[in-house]
Deep mutational scan, measured.
Amino acid sequence: MEVRTIKVFTTVDNINLHTQVVDMSMTYGQQFGPTYLDGADVTKIKPHNSHEGKTFYVLPNDDTLRVEAFEYYHTTDPSFLGRYMSALNHTKKWKYPQVNGLTSIKWADNNCYLATALLTLQQIELKFNPPALQDAYYRARAGEAANFCALILAYCNKTVGELGDVRETMSYLFQHANLDSCKRVLNVVCKTCGQQQTTLKGVEAVMYMGTLSYEQFKKGVQIPCTCGKQATKYLVQQESPFVMMSAPPAQYELKHGTFTCASEYTGNYQCGHYKHITSKETLYCIDGALLTKSSEYKGPITDVFYKENSYTTTIK
């Protein structure tokens, strides 16, 4: 009895394709271990004539594949690729409408935090270190965002349907971005203890939790000093293409032309909904596939993004 075979390709990165001759009487799992086709788990399936010449994702289970996976995804987590594939199996079914010149995501599976993050990423200057993220990001900007969303979920250790947080998501993504040249110098002034300067680099240099107003941050924000008295913390120097200011959701007025974009969060910790506000020729609110415009805006804002380049204080 002759062994019926077909020729397929296996890959971990969709760049390096490895030619395989597979036995049609055995499952993919018996031949390769966990195997995925377009995100779908085909591990328990036997090869079919229609699979001839198709590319299958496999887990990096030998040295060659491990090197290829690390170079593309910059992670050695053995569960990463499987999590990416199972997320992709959902995100490829989502709709990605162009809204006001940006790629958004039609609401499904509690994905409003991903839509808000995706919209924000198209408006701030950011370059990702893992080629996987950078490639998928370019495709997302062009309207094909399924891979990018699935990668975000995998890097953030999230599953489809789980509630997510924009600030946490951005923080994970910033860790995989090139923020080497970003720098922030802060000064804390206390009447009792004097003053202390701190220099922050990388992710810490672009994120701040405690106030939404970048102007206020430049002037000074009140913080408790270690001595128990009130101290003032203010920005001395900022070198970065953008800054992200966050605070627990509270009524906040966004003035046209003073910011790049913002995240609105309605609801409580267990259950809520994100919308995205962007400042173009007027203010726009993007909620999944829905767009509304207004000249002014007041609502429960939790993150505001500002364009920056270089700032030095005039406070002496």
Rank of each mutant, 00 (worst) to 15 (best):
S171E: 06
E239I: 11
F242N: 02
T35I: 15
D41G: 09
G101I: 01
A289C: 06
S246V: 01
Y28V: 03
A132T: 01
D41S: 12
Y73I: 01
T64P: 09
F305I: 12
A87Q: 07
G101F: 10
G267A: 13
F128R: 01
S279I: 00
V236R: 05
Y28H: 05
Y252M: 13
G39P: 02
M207S: 04
T75E: 08
T10F: 03
A247M: 05
F128H: 02
E239A: 09
S240Q: 03
T260E: 11
T76G: 13
K275M: 09
P47G: 08
Q175D: 07
Q222D: 15
K44Q: 11
K233C: 15
E144Y: 10
Y284H: 10
Q134V: 10
A231C: 06
T55Q: 08
K229V: 05
W107V: 01
L65V: 09
C156A: 09
V185Y: 00
C156H: 02
F128N: 05
G202S: 02
K93M: 13
L235R: 05
E52D: 12
K95E: 14
T55N: 10
P248G: 08
N147P: 10
Y297M: 06
F32W: 00
V236P: 03
K44Y: 12
V206N: 02
F259S: 05
N178M: 06
C271L: 15
L81P: 09
Y172Q: 11
E144P: 01
K307I: 10
V166Y: 10
A146Q: 07
W94C: 05
S240Y: 02
P300R: 06
H176F: 12
I277G: 00
E52V: 12
H176V: 05
Q237W: 08
K183Y: 07
N268H: 11
D135K: 08
T258Y: 06
A250P: 00
E71S: 15
P131F: 02
G101P: 05
V206Y: 02
V243D: 01
T312K: 07
V189Q: 08
N49I: 12
E144D: 12
L88A: 05
Q123A: 05
T55V: 12
S240G: 05
S263K: 03
I152A: 10
E52S: 13
K218Y: 03
T211I: 06
Y269T: 15
F305H: 00
L254I: 02
E296K: 10
C193P: 01
D62K: 06
I223P: 01
M245N: 07
T91I: 00
